[in-house]
Design a protein around this nucleic acid. Structure first.
Length: 491
RNA sequence: GGGAGGGUGGUCUAGCUUGGUAUGAUUCCUGGUUUGGGACCAGGUGGCCGGGGGUUCAAAUCCCCCCUCUCCCA
């Protein structure tokens, strides 16, 4: 855009994403009316219509995919009795500092037992699982729920990224064997790629998190890190191998083919829809506002009639005809309000509507219209009879084009380092570091702390896909390396 | 978690040092003229100055507590 940012009026974004990401994100949230932060409880925000529609579409895609893979939906109460919550010790220890408690009710005062506003639903669900699951014939038992959870976050809250209330899906599954559970973890990772990379156009990579950084109560945690382009990573959905850590205290047992009663092997998976949305708008947006994948846009096509005196009727009639031709296949808006055309262009760009169709007197004479794609600004003149065909073509490739632009070559961001100084330098240069590490079991935790202090990065864990590097020694302590880990700064 | 800075019509903001009638723009509504990248004219609506307490004849302004937001750093 040739237009200088400081000339932009208040309704547009005035901060450059490259120069001031935080300011840019705040303006995007406010001006595109995605969230309203004036609801004055810290960490609790109102998600406005435009964001809600897209988040619901994201939900639907994830839910459909989960059901396709054999999960059934259910709905759980949002309160968990403290006695349930206390059953698994590590889980309690991990979550207790973040729990909101309901301690009083109405006029009867204090409750006999405190009730936790669920921070996650393991301790609610597994109590039920122990009642529902009787035999190996009930397995695998795959369920999910779409809900809100509450965690009293100490860290700085940001709309969508980190709130004290957030919106997610959690899937909870039970298997007869550890291998069955591990297969589920792999399936969850595949699901995550399908949603985040293919639908949301966010590049990700999965790591097995170190022991000290795993989900409270899990055997192992596998988490997606989004590659934000600057060498920084952002944690997105994680899937957890629970083994029998919960099935034992919650008594989730089944009678196996051999007649023996056994504890199930469990997994859980929690993709946060609100955080995924935040990551998507932050990653794809530009200095004109939102950029959205075609399927996730609340409005996919906006028609803007260029009305001139004497010719209003002709143009409006044509615009309405275009609307009628497209409305059954796409979500279309005809913006015939009396704003000036330029003003409409800016505001629908801010909202990230993928296709804009302009129709004016000059087009009418030539029996054509003008299509503009939001994500690259390309302008296409289309003859009237070609309209449906061209729109179909754009709809087909629009998301793929965004994805192509946004997929970062992960390998090119990695720097292999053998010494601490090299790692410090690489992190400073915005790279992700691959290096040897003594252990991602608990005995490696002090080396991880050294990584944070001395290198200024976090140990993200062991890469899940193929491992190519061979490092002889740990970058910190010099002992023989048991694995290759990746170090990065995180959001 | 540590630090810094904010909260005044829907939005942005002046006023606060030195207490005394609430400033401007924009949005919104009405009417009219316009319309190919942020149009214009005229009129109008809209405020418990974040909340509570204190000082004072008098508080947006001074003092205390709380809530909340923004930015930076663990």
């Amino acid at each position: 855009m040739a237009k200088k940012k400081n000339e932009a009026p208040l309704t547009g974004i005035t901060v450059s994403k490259e120069e001031d990401f935080s300011g840019w994100y705040t303006e995007l949230i406010n001006k595109a009316e995605l969230a309203d932060i004036r609801y004055n409880i810290k960490g609790f925000v109102v998600y406005r219509e435009w964001a809600t529609i897209t988040i619901r579409k994201m939900y639907r895609k994830s839910e459909d995919l989960l059901e396709l893979k054999g999960h059934l939906p259910l709905t759980m109460p949002s309160l968990i009795p403290e006695s349930n919550f206390l059953l698994e010790a590590e889980h309690v220890e991990g979550f207790a500092p973040e729990v909101f408690w309901v301690t009083e009710a109405g006029s009867s005062g204090k409750l006999a037992e405190r009730l936790a506003l669920r921070p996650t639903s393991e301790t609610a669900l597994y109590k039920m699982y122990s009642m529902w699951i009787r035999s190996y014939k009930d397995l695998p038992f795959k369920r999910y729920l779409s809900c809100q959870v509450w965690r009293y976050e100490g860290k700085m809250t940001r709309p969508f990224f980190r709130g004290r209330e957030f919106h997610w899906i959690e899937s909870h599954n039970v298997f007869a064997t550890m291998e069955g559970a591990m297969e589920q973890v792999k399936e969850d990772m595949e699901t995550t790629y399908q949603i985040l990379q293919d639908e949301c156009c966010i590049p990700i990579i999965f790591f097995q998190r170190p022991e000290w950084d795993k989900f409270a109560g899990a055997v192992h945690t596998y988490a997606a890190d989004a590659l934000m382009g600057s060498g920084k990573v952002l944690q997105l959905p994680s899937t957890h191998l629970l083994g029998q850590n919960f099935s034992k205290p919650f008594n989730v047992k089944f009678v196996d083919t051999d007649g023996e009663e056994k504890y199930g092997y469990q997994t859980c998976y929690g993709p946060s829809q609100s955080r995924n949305y935040g990551a998507m708008i932050a990653f794809l947006g530009d200095n004109n506002g939102l950029v959205l994948p075609f399927d996730l846009a609340p409005i996919q096509i906006v028609i803007i009639p260029i009305l001139f005196k004497q010719k209003e009727d002709l143009i409006l009639t044509k615009a309405r005809e275009i609307f009628e031709r497209l409305k059954n296949k796409y979500t279309v808006k005809l913006d015939d309000s009396d704003e000036s055309p330029g003003s409409k262009f800016y505001s629908w760009e801010l909202k990230g509507v993928p296709i804009r169709i302009e129709i004016g007197p000059r087009d009418l004479e030539k029996n054509q219209m003008v299509l503009i794609k939001r994500h690259d600004g390309k302008k296409i003149f289309v003859k009237d009879p070609e309209l449906e065909k061209v729109v179909d073509e754009i709809a087909q490739i629009y998301t793929k084009e965004i994805k192509e632009k946004s997929m970062i070559d992960f390998e090119s961001q990695i720097e292999l380092t053998y010494e601490k100084d090299a790692a410090i330098e690489a992190i400073k240069n915005g790279k992700i570091v691959a290096c040897g590490f003594c252990s991602i079991d608990l005995d490696g935790e002090c080396c991880a702390e050294a990584v944070e202090k001395e290198i200024g990065a976090e140990v993200r864990g062991k890469r899940v896909d193929e491992e190519k590097h061979e490092f002889a020694t740990c970058i910190i302590c010099g002992k023989p390396a048991s694995c290759t880990v990746y170090l990065a700064k995180s959001y």
